[in-house]
């Protein structure tokens, strides 16, 4: 049977949702072993053991793996891969950082960002900002795959009872060190797992105007906040709010695009949302070509009015 090693994305305490989609994809390939790498990760390993569909947890507990530095983690995965047929990682920034390094060391061509599993080595994946879908078959002996989270249902986080086994790798590679991070703490739902998202674009003028306009609407709807590249580049919001081809891929129940024109790069990140709502003063804005519900209006009057009526 195909043995699949799945990268567990976590923050040292909690298993990230993206992992659950990766487990679903991996389970379509074969038996899933979840790799928890980090420092002091007993809790994470215990949580991973409960994910439905996980047959075993491999726990690599070492200070060298604390920040998932690719230079340290890739050799660990490569060493473990002697016993596996496939390595599957969520297409998060961590997965995208590590998986190609693993693939190259294994002399394997990675299949990035898969949308579906069509056969033991056949997948669909988006190319050209999702304007085309390629069906590709891998021919290498081993598989390295990253998984688009919005394309696969999340495996149940509980219900499983896998055994946890300690594994070890080469440890510190001595090439890189973690210096620090600036992680925005927010009470809001995470963008990639939110049910409702309100996104703002260039029309929001500046950071205070973005906050004053978008935040009350997001609060009323219990939504996460996203943005177009233009809004991020202009400094209205932090970089990790960017939705699109080169930002976050989202597919919430409801996506509200406010003052966003709908460039193909933006659509690539949100056009699989269940219901798209657009507010834009330009009735010819391309966003209306994908919106289920459109309101042609000046957002600076429409959004406050909407907030007051919700």
């Amino acid at each position: 049977m195909t043995k699949v090693l799945v990268w567990v994305e976590h923050d040292g305490a909690v298993v990230k949702d993206a992992t659950l989609s990766a487990v679903t994809a991996a389970a379509q390939l074969g038996e899933v072993v979840a790799l928890v790498a980090g420092s002091g990760v007993d809790g994470v390993a215990a949580a991973a053991a409960q994910i439905e569909g996980v047959a075993k947890v491999a726990k690599a507990d070492d200070a060298a793996y604390a920040h998932a530095l690719a230079e340290n983690v890739a050799p660990l995965v490569v060493a473990l891969m002697a016993d596996y047929d496939a390595f599957v990682a969520p297409a998060t920034t961590t997965g995208k950082n590590i998986a190609p390094r693993v693939a190259a060391l294994l002399d394997v061509m990675q299949v990035s960002d898969i949308l579906s599993v069509e056969g033991p080595k056949t997948f669909t994946r988006p190319i050209y900002a999702g304007n085309a879908i390629a069906t590709v078959e891998a021919t290498d002996a081993k598989l390295v795959v990253t998984v688009r989270g919005t394309a696969f249902a999340k495996a149940n986080a509980t219900g499983g009872s896998a055994a946890v086994e300690a594994v070890a790798g080469p440890g510190e590679a001595g090439l890189s060190t973690y210096v620090g991070s600036e992680i925005a703490k927010s009470e809001r739902p995470e963008l990639t797992s939110a049910k409702i998202i309100v996104s703002g674009g260039r029309a929001l003028k500046d950071a205070p105007t973005f906050a004053a306009t978008i935040t009350p609407l997001a609060d009323k709807l219990g939504a996460a906040i996203g943005a177009s590249r233009a809004a991020v580049d202009a400094g209205y919001v932090p970089n990790d709010y960017q939705v699109g081809q080169t930002g976050k891929i989202v597919a919430p129940e409801v996506y509200v695009a406010v003052g966003i024109s709908g460039a193909i790069q933006h659509l690539a990140g949100m056009k699989d949302s269940k219901t798209i709502i657009a507010i834009n003063k330009d009735e010819d804005a391309p966003i209306f070509q994908v919106a289920d519900i459109g309101l042609v209006a000046d957002l600076f009057t429409a959004v406050p009015e909407l907030v007051s009526k919700l």
């Binding site: 394997v108 061509m109 299949v111 056949t122 988006p126 190319i127 999702g130 304007n131 085309a132 879908i133 390629a134 069906t135 590709v136 078959e137 891998a138 021919t139 290498d140 056009k271 798209i276 009735e283 209306f288 070509q289 994908v290 919106a291 289920d292 519900i293 459109g294 309101l295 042609v296 209006a297 429409a302 009015e305 909407l306 009526k309």
Partner: peptide
């Protein structure tokens, strides 16, 4: 190439929906 491209197709197309008249 290590990946064989078997097919390149269109993504599912989204139909434009409706426009509403006002905030209400």
């Amino acid at each position: 190439p290590r990946l064989k491209t078997l097919k390149v197709g269109e993504p599912p197309v989204r139909q434009a929906g409706i426009k509403v008249a006002d905030v209400d």
